[in-house]
């Protein structure tokens, strides 16, 4: 991306879980809005105060869920909070919501061992942004302290994340689950989203 500037602000609440105040977050976001096109605000998992603070000023929400009961259940709660506790919702506006399904194993889903994409979509009723396949590469990248798209940009999960980013920016990208197979058979075996 040309002229792409990135700044990271670490706000991990490692010392004090209540270090962030609503007014403080509001002030920082308002300042950032004047200088950046995209502000990505990571949220702690679950439905605690940290999550409500992170979503408070959002225009777009990406709900990240695993195909597991506990994760889908929390996502449902978060969607409810997005529709009621965000600034946009309080002004009577709609907040744009997307589902990013991670740690997906299409083989297990096909065998009935894992919730399928359509099962999760059926329950959460929000549009799908992408499906990230389960991969050992993710832990490897995490161990190295690098984002997966930086540590191994050609790996299946990295390609899935990059596709999701393009969709978020408004491009039309077919919903595929990238696989790790390479070479001649890669295209033949590339699975369409289940």
């Amino acid at each position: 991306m040309p002229n792409f500037r990135r700044r990271s602000f670490a706000t991990s609440q490692t010392r004090d879980k209540d270090a962030l105040s609503e007014e403080g977050v509001s002030r920082v976001i308002d300042e950032l809005r004047q200088n950046f096109d995209w502000i990505i605000c990571d949220s702690p998992a679950g439905i605690e105060r940290g999550a409500t603070l992170a979503m408070r000023h959002a225009d777009i929400a990406i709900v990240v869920a695993n195909p597991e009961v506990s994760s889908v259940r929390d996502s449902d709660r978060i969607i409810g909070l997005l529709d009621s506790k965000t600034r946009k919702a309080e002004k009577g506006e709609r907040i744009e919501k997307h589902l990013l399904l991670t740690r997906y194993d299409s083989g297990r889903a096909k065998r009935g061992e894992m919730l399928r994409t359509e099962d999760v979509l059926d329950i959460l009723s929000i549009p799908l942004l992408g499906i990230i396949p389960e991969s050992q590469e993710v832990l490897r990248a995490s161990n190295l302290g690098q984002p997966i798209v930086a540590s191994n940009a050609t790996s299946a999960p990295a390609r899935a994340y990059l596709d999701a980013v393009r969709r978020l920016k408004g491009e039309t990208v077919a919903m595929m689950i990238p696989s790790n197979r390479t070479g001649v058979f890669a295209k033949l075996f590339r699975q369409r989203a289940a």
Partner: peptide, 22 residues
Amino acid sequence: RGSAPVAHQRLQILLAHERAVI
């Protein structure tokens, strides 16, 4: 083999309840 349908069903029951209460 059939644990995913059980998960789907459990979620439906759980969420029907939670959406009603919460």
